[in-house]
Design a protein around this nucleic acid. Sequence first.
DNA 1: CTAAAGTTGCTAATTAATTCACATGGTATA
DNA 2: TATACCATGTGAATTAATTAGCAACTTTAG
Lengths: 205, 205
Amino acid sequence: MNKRKVPKATMQRYPLYLKALKKLQSLGIDRIMSNQLGSFIDVEPTTIRRDFSFIGTLGKQGYGYDIETLIETFEGHLGGTYNEKIIIVGAGNLGRALMNYNRWNNVVGEVACAFDIDENKVGVINDIPIYPLSQLSKNIPVGCRIAILTVSHDAQETVDKLIEAGIVGFISFTHDHIRVPKDVFIKYVDVISSIQELVFQVNNI
Amino acid sequence: MNKRKVPKATMQRYPLYLKALKKLQSLGIDRIMSNQLGSFIDVEPTTIRRDFSFIGTLGKQGYGYDIETLIETFEGHLGGTYNEKIIIVGAGNLGRALMNYNRWNNVVGEVACAFDIDENKVGVINDIPIYPLSQLSKNIPVGCRIAILTVSHDAQETVDKLIEAGIVGFISFTHDHIRVPKDVFIKYVDVISSIQELVFQVNNI
DNA sequence: CTAAAGTTGCTAATTAATTCACATGGTATA
DNA sequence: TATACCATGTGAATTAATTAGCAACTTTAG
């Protein structure tokens, strides 16, 4: 097992591995070689082996990898303890669609509650309570570290408030550029940027 | 101007640049140095200059960059001709939320229409017609290259059909792993994978 | 039990991406 | 118009990531 810090590129592949392994497991496969996994997800086998080595000695020489073991290990590292309390900030169309999305459980945790600046949005959707943003500090769940941002205005201002309330990781659906301190992470899940990148690629083959 | 092919890492930053530049323009700024832009988006100035150099000689020595020129140039490369016809496949909660999202125009093009396998979903949302997936080939817009995938089942099968119909770029909101040929691009906009990556980062500071 | 076959995990080599450092040529001021 | 300044753009150096190659160990077949 290699003890260096995990490269960024490797970190980005971990969710992909977990996703693929679960798919394979659902197909009834319980053992796999880096080789096969590689051709399944289009990643070089040697890259896979190296990526895995940062987490531990997961495979057996001459045998391959046990899918169940891999899944358990990855889930442990990627939030599979299922106790992450996530909040959604912004209860517009997108925020509500996410609340109705029923695949949060058994993945990383659960959406504990949501917030919106508009007091008229207060209520309950799919058993998830929506509170006014003004009551953030009162209603934010204990130990909550991750927020999903689906606001349409004042994203920066909202993020600043959330950081103050203890959030250290953001998933942002907004197309706004947001600045966060070094010890806070933000991941953009941004359709527009994705389409732009896609157009650039498609135009530059 | 450097004529090598654009590195992948660079390509991923282009949408970020455009986003930041538009923000700066909206603040009334019309000229910027790589230095300032760098501290604004937390990218090394020299990386910015190199990234820009792949597109052309955009700056003036001793002066900096003209924001308007930059925006025009980037828009040209990232789909700013606004004539991309995009389709949405899957008219569930998420698909409908995207149809109601009103920021497609003046960014990359427009959502021309949507498709769903469920004939009961056929109708019109926000002026966007929804057709049954069985009538894909009949209703797909001429020149359409990009599809946004928000289906909840049979993603792979659907993608295969769409590729046959001429789609070469996908934005997938599904958490399923999808395989595409080498000349087709797929970008995942996947909350679950993003949260997993975030959890891993937050746990490994 | 022994030997052949096969796959991991690691070191070394290669390739990609970032950062340094500075010549170049425009800008600003008087 | 002359002069001091300043930021770009790019070759060279560095650092990060990927890929090749192989020793070590497991499994499996005979």
